[in-house]
């Protein structure tokens, strides 16, 4: 009887393993587009990179198919908000075979590691990549203290 129970338990354990594998398979299904980047989910769209170049923070955003008029950037202190919308124009009189490119409005906010000077921010959009250079505010820059 006990051996039977053990076998049953083993089987149930195996089923658990199978279930978790199935779960991860379903998750993978959602990210067919970019398998190498597991963080590419809907939660963090658009994807961004943040670099610190000393005086500036550099934010790089991936926004294919979005014109510059459709992107809004809001900065306050060390808070950055990106919003915008991506439209898909189905050309008149065409039948649709495939629509994988999402048409949606997006919004994403960040807490930057430093306060930035919102007046001196520059932004450029090239080939669907938005590059923003955010100068750190004077208070956030390192200061040399003279000893008297």
């Amino acid at each position: 009887m006990w051996t039977r129970m053990n076998e049953l338990e083993k089987m149930l354990n195996n089923m658990d393993i199978f279930r978790s594998r199935l779960g991860s398979a379903f998750q993978d299904f959602d990210r067919v587009i970019e398998q190498r980047h597991p963080w590419a989910t809907a939660d963090n769209y658009p994807r961004t990179n943040l670099n610190d170049t000393g005086d500036n923070l550099e934010v790089i955003v991936e926004v294919p198919g979005v014109s510059k008029d459709d992107i809004n950037v809001k900065i306050q202190g060390n808070y950055l908000e990106l919003s915008g919308k991506r439209t898909r124009e189905v050309p008149e009189g065409y039948t649709v075979h495939r629509t994988e490119r999402e048409a949606n409005s997006f919004s994403r906010s960040f807490t930057l590691p430093y306060e930035v000077d919102a007046d001196k921010v520059t932004a450029s959009l090239h080939n669907g990549i938005l590059t923003m250079s955010l100068p750190k505010s004077e208070a956030a820059k390192p200061k040399q203290i003279a000893i008297s």
């Binding site: 590419a40 963090n44 994807r47 943040l50 670099n51 610190d52």
Partner: peptide
């Protein structure tokens, strides 16, 4: 890549 990377979501 310019400067130190704080976070990188695409490459």
């Amino acid at each position: 890549d310019s400067g130190a990377t704080r976070w990188q979501e695409f490459g």
